[in-house]
Write a protein that binds this DNA or RNA. Sequence first.
DNA 1: TGACTGTATGCCGATACAGTAATATACTTG
DNA 2: CAAGTATATTACTGTATCGGCATACAGTCA
Lengths: 108, 108
Amino acid sequence: MSRLRLTPEIIELVAARFKALAEPARLEILNCLRGGEMTVTELVEASGLGQANVSKHLHILHSIGFVRRRKDGLFVWYMLADKGVMQMCDVMCGRLEQELKQRERLAG
Amino acid sequence: MSRLRLTPEIIELVAARFKALAEPARLEILNCLRGGEMTVTELVEASGLGQANVSKHLHILHSIGFVRRRKDGLFVWYMLADKGVMQMCDVMCGRLEQELKQRERLAG
DNA sequence: TGACTGTATGCCGATACAGTAATATACTTG
DNA sequence: CAAGTATATTACTGTATCGGCATACAGTCA
């Protein structure tokens, strides 16, 4: 499939991208952005996180290309960079769903 | 798509699964297992990591269902739990590949 | 210009986690 | 049983990072 050689450097880059998704706060932010672009303040209100915290998480998500930013006067609007980001989250959710069902079946 | 409600608890579980992939050592281990099941010692040799380290990483990967284990006398064989695990890695690799291409294009 | 608002950044304390060494456990073999 | 091997666990250390606070920066409006 992938034509990339899995050198240590590449593996590091891939790990860094998974790490961006490995934080509940960032998943929450990304999930908020499903509905369309939002300002930092809107994300603060929607997520319940601190402003500085949201800003930092957005910086991380932006630095690896998971979100895009657009300045509009005093505001900065953030949006998902592409569909692929949330598709990956959905796949992981799907795995988890199967897993939980399996456990229920065993327990019940 | 997913029928799971994204409660804080669920988001935490999803994040934990991404976190398992957010470590170069674990990606390396998973990648080694692409070729089939391997013992801990084989993984130690193939990855260059310490034995205790590999054991702990395998424990993490096993606890969230990314690998399966099979005891055979003194040995423990590990294998990928299913195709989905590496598919997710491949998707992330694909994203990275596009990203690197894009940068090349801009730089070149 | 000064006051105000939205966003980003630097610093700090607490915590989490990777890696290593030593040890414990499980199993085999003599 | 004792000795040896494969794996797991524990204790420890160094590093990274999250969250909060304070503050800096950027832009608007009077």
